[in-house]
Nucleic acid binder design. Structure first.
Lengths: 356, 356
DNA sequence: GTGAAAGCGCTAACAT
DNA sequence: ATGTTAGCGCTTTCAC
């Protein structure tokens, strides 16, 4: 707190010797204090080269002393760049608006780091799409952000496509299809599902279950991969849609596993979160993992190694993906073109499956 | 896509009959189209009452048709309110900038919901404080936000205090001390620690360990609560600082539990995340929970019920806390005064402790 | 109920 | 290297 000294004793940088505390609210105020023009202050504070080093220092010191920061709204309006990236989490097919998978929050954390690193601020928006493209265009169309990152495509693939047609700086985490307009970064989910199922089958499973809602395209692809592998191996497969609302998940899993005519001996969960719930339910029912039932998760969250038994899972490269998303978005903002990126999934074998 | 029709055939709302697609970028553009003034368009789009209902409808329809949204930066600059709340996660005492406890991400999720509900956008910032108050003043002082929410106080209590002296619309999750300047919402951590320890002791534990860094004030208070209870009961207590970087956590826990001269039979973890790691390590070492060692977590995250055994923990009311934070912040923005809120902790007994 | 005019606080040409 | 000028696109008195 440098204010409070009433009798300016020489070094308080206040040219009018009244000693009254001067409120510096605008560039113009500071300019007056420094005896220069607003333009110069603007340049000095922005660290521009065309300002005399000495005056720059002086102005910066003055600004610091008075705790002055230029108003960002004015700056952004004038310069037509906001330095802000909109990060949107579409909660398309989830009744409860809460939580969403820890996967998304982990991705968000990495995106936040990466954006900060690149000098961007982050405007977060969790939206429940309403059937129109409004939820997205609210971000893209209002001059608030320089670009948009989507944390998942949810069940909004087509809407994202249509918006991306006219709004370039947009990158989504999710799936990529041939001729897709919008740039996506994600995992090869079909391959991931396939690998998971093959691993289960190699461990002796014959009656598989896939647990998870397939409304989101990513999850659906995982299911397809599982289905393909099951068909090829002549294994049976049931699909059990599980809502993410954790309160109900346990009941749903129990009901589902009870109903099935053949005893399920291999589970592919659509995510680690679901897998953890499955593990918990199986334990409750006294079914041993991996001896009676094998379980594979998807994501490889840090928590996956802490379950009992530790979770075999399909790893997604979240940190790497976040890096790629930001890098691609930057490229798009600068007018370049970018490809989508589908990363290969990787099987992480732990204790919830029989290794060979 | 309503554009694309080249020969305006009557109903395309385009008064100049060239049929050329008109780009509507500003209020003025739309005003011209509608044959009114910019001011009227502004009022119509804002749904103000003093506009003729009919013209309002017409203008809104026109705006929709052309996908026009008023530029937020201009609007915010002019109206001197941004409709944005800054949410800051200070990563004070964590080497790795990543992750932070899932607790914080859960809180973030609830805050996001709550802010959205109240019509605010959310500007997220994860910062690593540098010893100055810069990380905070960057948010408070640049006209970007109407208020600031802090997700945790980290080890920045004093800095928050000093900023709060002159910046009113600020609410933090965290601890409250007598005569504290800034508004805080949180749990009574001392009581929480005490309850946890007493429960352990009631279950027969005599040699306690507290696991967690106490640099953050909240955690330190939990430790104090544990210490008080241990002293009163004549139980021993060791403090084992554990960094949150999950890679190292396991090693640290193992090293710590190995070194201690007496066998620890009761663990209070500073968070559920730590508790989960502790459970995992104990399993690795073949020590049974709760028979040989009892474990209590802190937070009651959704995941706490999924561990094996399910985690006994001290519940923090995250959703309720998020609601309170937003409500108090709103009050402060509107110039009212608000008290801090310390919520009572609640013991949730599950399987990781002996219930009497 | 609507139009005209005056900025919000800053930046970027264009002068000098 | 610095000052001057002209807006960025919107909201909001103030007239009518």
């Amino acid at each position: 707190m440098t204010s409070g000294i009433e009798n300016g004793n020489g070094n308080n940088g206040d040219p009018d010797s009244t000693g009254a505390p001067v409120k510096v609210r605008t560039l113009a105020d500071l300019a007056r204090l420094a005896g220069v023009s607003a333009g110069t202050v603007s340049r000095a504070l922005a660290g521009k080269s065309l300002v005399n080093a000495e005056t720059r220092e002086r102005i910066q010191a003055l600004a610091r002393e008075h705790g002055f920061r230029p108003n960002q709204m004015a700056s952004k309006l004038r310069s037509r760049r906001t330095g802000v990236i909109g990060v949107v989490i579409p909660l398309g097919h989830e009744k409860r608006q809460q939580i969403s998978d820890p996967f998304f929050l982990t991705l968000l954390g990495h995106l936040a780091d990466e954006l900060t690193e690149h000098g961007y601020d982050l405007m977060l928006s969790r939206v429940i799409p309403d059937g129109t493209s409004d939820w997205l265009e609210r971000m893209t169309g209002s001059g608030m952000v320089d670009g948009v990152l989507l944390i998942g495509q949810s069940d909004q693939f087509d809407i994202i496509e249509s918006v991306a047609e006219s709004y370039r700086p947009l990158v989504a985490w999710g799936s990529w299809r041939d001729n897709q307009v919008h740039c996506a970064v994600g995992t090869d989910n079909i391959a991931g599902g396939r690998i998971a199922a093959e691993h289960l089958i190699a461990g002796g499973a014959r009656n598989l279950a896939f647990m998870g809602e397939t409304q989101g395209i990513e999850i659906d692809e995982r299911y397809q991969g599982v289905a393909a592998a099951a068909t090829e191996a002549g294994a049976s497969l049931v699909h059990i849609p599980i809502s993410l609302a954790s309160a109900e998940m346990g009941e749903q899993i129990k009901a589902a596993t009870a109903n099935s005519d053949r005893a399920i001996d291999g589970v592919v969960a659509a995510s680690d979160l679901i897998a953890m719930n499955v593990l918990h339910c199986l334990r409750d029912k006294g079914r041993s993992v991996p001896d009676e039932v094998q379980v594979v998760g998807f994501d490889d969250l840090p928590l996956a190694s802490l379950t009992m038994p530790p979770l075999t899972t399909i790893r997604q490269e979240i940190a790497e993906g976040a890096k790629a998303m930001v890098q691609k978005l930057k490229a798009k903002i600068e007018g370049e073109d970018t490809d989508s990126l589908q990363m290969p999934p990787r099987l992480i074998v732990r204790g919830s499956t029989r290794s060979n």
